[in-house]
Design a protein around this nucleic acid. Structure first.
Ligand code: FES
Ligand code: FES
Lengths: 163, 163
DNA sequence: GATCACGTAACTTATGTTGTTTCGAATGCT
DNA sequence: AGCATTCGAAACAACATAAGTTACGTGATC
């Protein structure tokens, strides 16, 4: 009954779209556990996808200065900042701030007052929801998530390493 | 700088997806201004689209009891409830509660604790944002929007009728 | 009965993420 | 120097979903 028990199943959305944020967080936290460079191929195997997808997605993180990439032997990806210095919001922004909502406004009639009123209301609600989301993403660092991982580690059957 | 000045341009999203809610609100408020039945064709012209799209989308509203449809001469769509009895949330639900977010979770590894921690955090943030959105949609009725239209009417150059 | 208007199915289009292949460039080992 | 490794980037196919379109059936009104 509480307003926070939203029971929507994001898992149910087949493959709707844009799991980049989730994936990148996964990768970054993983990288925080090892010092060595990780290759795109290893990460791709970790996420059951293709190395090119990894490079494509992590390009934004590199440009934002959160990771570094090195070519050649022993190369790969390395964290450029400690996990505590990177918030979920930072990652989201490094990905180019992809659209948050699947719901859009109809803007067929520039002059229609009804449309204006409808869109103003929807836009207000969405802006407020996005503000909440952004605020929460900004409050959580990757180190917080890593700590949560440790917490979960003391209970369920472990599943530490990759591959 | 404040977290609430989100300057995202929903208008800029080309035709990303799902403007059904916006469109249906537009139609319903419009219907509230006239007593006569409105045909799918008229509505489609209003929204610059196809009558079949209208029937398809309004089917949910009919099943939810917010509108009625009649065949034959003089037929079309009519409100089944006054605008004050229909909230934006009601309309959203009648449309089948389409996905709110374009951001999804990655669930490739059921056993990975890192993924669990990441998804728990993201899911929490998204659930809270959705709760806010739903709360706001539930507080606004179509009558409120109609009143807002009237308010806008006393200022800018009017644009009353359709077609 | 003719016309109007909805109901539904089927197909096409548009947009964006994801997946894949391919080539080039830089790095480091031998 | 030569070669294997690894990223960088372009190009293209695959997939999913809202939206647009066509076609045909059904029911109601004139
Ligand atoms: S931490 Fe999830 S696969 Fe490596
Ligand atoms: S009210 Fe916007 S076109 Fe009719």
């Amino acid at each position: 009954m509480s307003p926070t028990d939203g029971e929507r199943d994001w898992r149910e959305t087949t493959v709707r779209q844009d799991s980049r944020l989730s994936r990148m967080l996964h990768v970054l936290i993983h990288m925080g556990r090892y010092e060595e460079a990780v290759t795109s191929e290893t990460i791709a195997a970790m996420l059951s996808t293709n190395p090119v997808v990894i490079r494509r997605t992590m390009a934004g993180l590199r440009e934002a200065g959160y990771v570094r990439s090195e070519k050649g032997h022993g190369g790969g990806w390395r964290l450029a900042l400690p996990l505590g210095r990177i918030s979920l919001l930072d990652v989201y922004r490094a990905l180019g701030e992809p659209p948050v909502f699947a719901i859009g406004l109809s803007i067929d009639h520039a002059g229609c007052l009804v449309e204006q009123a409808v869109n103003a209301s929807l836009q207000g609600a969405m802006a407020e929801a996005e503000a909440i989301l952004v605020a929460r993403l900004g409050q959580v660092t990757l180190a917080d998530l890593a700590a949560d991982v440790d917490r979960r580690h003391e209970g369920a059957g472990c599943n530490p390493g990759p591959v």
